[in-house]
């Protein structure tokens, strides 16, 4: 499974970079959106393959049954039968945060499009670059 995940990460990440390098701001926003997916998948892949080592089915979700750690651990360490909860916790906040960041980014794009009347990055770059004498 890790390999499948890695290929997904590679493709999604590659596409998002391709979009980020584009000229128009809407594509850029979509690139950022995809970047979030790629990062989340990458973190999730760190929990290892969800397939049980003996190949029989999948591991359990990271939920204990009435606080019984021993049952989850089943004699050994719990993570041999259960997926790693830590990446999931990290991603959960990341999803919500990425929503907020997306909204903020899109708002910025709206405002900048209204101010400059363009969605082209190269056009934006030509404007208001401080001249050295001002920067000094």
């Amino acid at each position: 499974m890790t390999f499948v995940m890695a290929v997904c990460v590679a493709v999604v990440f590659g596409v998002s970079i391709y979009m980020l390098l584009g000229r128009e701001l809407k594509g850029l926003a979509m690139g950022v959106f995809l970047l979030g997916h790629a990062a989340n998948l990458c973190i999730l892949a760190q929990s290892g393959s969800p397939v049980l080592p003996d190949g029989e089915g999948l591991k359990a979700p990271p939920v204990l049954s009435h606080g019984d750690y021993e049952a989850a651990a089943h004699g050994g360490e719990a993570l041999s039968r259960m997926v790693d909860p830590l990446p999931q916790a990290l991603i959960l906040t990341a999803i919500v945060i990425s929503f907020a960041v997306m909204a903020f980014l899109l708002t910025l794009i709206i405002v900048s499009a209204r101010k400059t009347n363009t969605l082209d990055i190269n056009e934006l770059g030509k404007e208001q670059l401080p001249t050295p004498s001002q920067a000094h």
Binding site: P61, V63, L92, T93, I95, V96
Partner: peptide, 12 residues
Amino acid sequence: HNAPGGGFIGGL
């Protein structure tokens, strides 16, 4: 706290 769910999911 005890089953899938929580503030983030509930909130969304």
